[in-house]
Simulated assay, not measured.
Amino acid sequence: MPYDAREIANFFVDRAGETGLPLTHLSLQKILFFAHAWHLAKYNAPLIGQRFEAWKHGPVVRVVYDQLKVYKDKEISSRLTKIDVTTGIMSFARYDLNSNLMKFLENIFDYYAKFDAGKLVDLTHEEAGPWEKVWKSGLDGAVVGMYIPDESIRLWILREGGRGSLIRH
Rank of each mutant, 00 (worst) to 15 (best):
M1E: 15
Y3P: 13
D4M: 12
D4Y: 12
A5R: 08
E7W: 12
E7S: 04
I8P: 03
N10F: 15
N10I: 11
V13F: 05
D14W: 09
A16W: 00
A16Q: 02
G17T: 02
E18F: 03
P22L: 00
P22Q: 00
L23V: 03
L23M: 09
T24F: 02
H25D: 01
H25T: 01
H25G: 03
H25E: 01
L26E: 06
L26G: 04
L26N: 06
S27I: 08
S27V: 07
L28S: 06
Q29I: 01
K30L: 04
I31H: 05
I31C: 13
L32M: 08
F33L: 09
F33S: 02
F34D: 07
F34C: 03
A35Q: 12
H36W: 11
H36K: 05
A37E: 04
A37L: 08
W38V: 13
A41S: 13
A41W: 05
Y43N: 14
Y43P: 08
N44Y: 03
N44S: 04
L47G: 12
G49P: 06
G49Y: 07
E53Q: 14
W55L: 00
K56Q: 12
K56R: 11
H57T: 10
P59I: 09
P59D: 03
P59Y: 04
V60M: 10
V61E: 01
R62H: 09
R62S: 11
R62V: 11
V64D: 03
Y65A: 02
L68G: 05
K69A: 14
V70Q: 07
K72M: 15
D73H: 15
E75F: 06
I76M: 03
S77Q: 12
T81F: 04
T81N: 04
K82D: 04
I83R: 05
T86E: 12
I89T: 05
S91I: 04
A93M: 06
Y95A: 02
D96C: 11
L97E: 03
N100E: 15
L101T: 05
F104L: 04
F104C: 03
Y111D: 01
Y112P: 04
Y112H: 08
K114R: 01
K114T: 14
K114N: 15
F115V: 05
G118S: 14
K119W: 04
K119Y: 00
V121M: 13
L123K: 08
T124C: 14
T124D: 10
H125V: 00
H125C: 07
E126F: 14
P130H: 12
W131I: 11
S137C: 01
L139Q: 12
D140T: 05
D140R: 01
G141I: 05
A142E: 08
V144K: 01
M146L: 09
Y147A: 10
I148Y: 00
I148R: 00
D150N: 09
E151T: 00
L155K: 15
L155P: 10
I157G: 07
I157D: 07
L158T: 01
E160C: 10
E160L: 10
G162L: 14
R163P: 06
R163S: 13
G164M: 11
G164A: 10
G164S: 14
S165T: 06
L166T: 10
I167S: 05
H169N: 05
H169P: 07
H169L: 10
